[in-house]
Design a protein around this nucleic acid. Structure first.
Length: 191
DNA sequence: TAAGTGATCTCT
DNA sequence: GAGATCACTTAA
């Protein structure tokens, strides 16, 4: 087996675990008969009621409702009137948690990613699988721990000193990304 | 450094 | 209903 679609069970784990594991996995979109995929290189975790940087910090609303569902669905919302943010919901029902996909190989920036790939709120609340046309695959790439950098999350100064500074943003050092691909035919960058 | 953009949330 | 805010990007 060269690649497999990450199952719901994978996303039932805690946000920080899933966040770590998602680095090196492949985001795949299949739309209008065309398929695109790229390795996930940057993510942020938003975990629980206590996380003041999370949309769920002030309770459930119409917008953040998907975060309160069981893991394995998408949470997509519009920010600054222009940009769709793509998140994966994790953990059990009624525990709000999600991972923001901030970048893939070749595209740095969550708003750019969704714009370039045509990912909209259409996917909000839908599961990650082939039926919806947007999912995540494991293609066997393993990211050495030393290549993963942690930092505070972006754009969450409003969360106060403690939560704004939590090292919940993980990314792969960009200069190391190319070396991660398998050299065998059929694996690697091309979908 | 600041404009652009509009849904959503929190007050009236 | 009105006003503020916002997990961003781009062009200067």
């Amino acid at each position: 087996m060269r690649s497999h679609i990450l199952p719901k069970a994978f996303f039932m784990q805690s946000a920080l675990v899933v966040a770590h594991e998602l680095l090196g996995k492949f985001l795949v979109v299949s739309k209008n008969g065309k398929r695109r995929s790229s390795m996930i290189t940057e993510i942020e975790a938003y975990d629980g009621f206590e996380d003041k940087a999370s949309h769920a910090a002030r309770g459930k609303t119409l917008r953040n409702a998907p975060m309160f569902q069981e893991g394995g669905i998408w949470y997509v919302y519009l920010i600054y009137g222009m940009y769709n943010m793509l998140n994966v919901v994790t953990g059990p029902r009624a525990y709000p948690a999600a991972i923001l996909i901030r970048g893939v190989d070749g595209i740095g920036g969550p708003g750019k990613l969704t714009r370039l790939w045509g990912i909209t709120r259409f996917y909000n609340g839908l599961p990650l699988n082939q039926s919806t046309g947007l999912w995540i695959e494991d293609r066997g790439v393993v990211i050495p721990q030393k290549l993963i950098t942690k930092s505070p999350r972006v754009g969450v100064m409003y969360a106060g000193p403690v939560w704004a500074q939590k090292p919940y943003r993980f990314f792969i050092c960009p200069s190391e990304i190319n070396a991660l691909y398998f050299k065998e035919p059929g694996a690697g960058k091309s979908a």
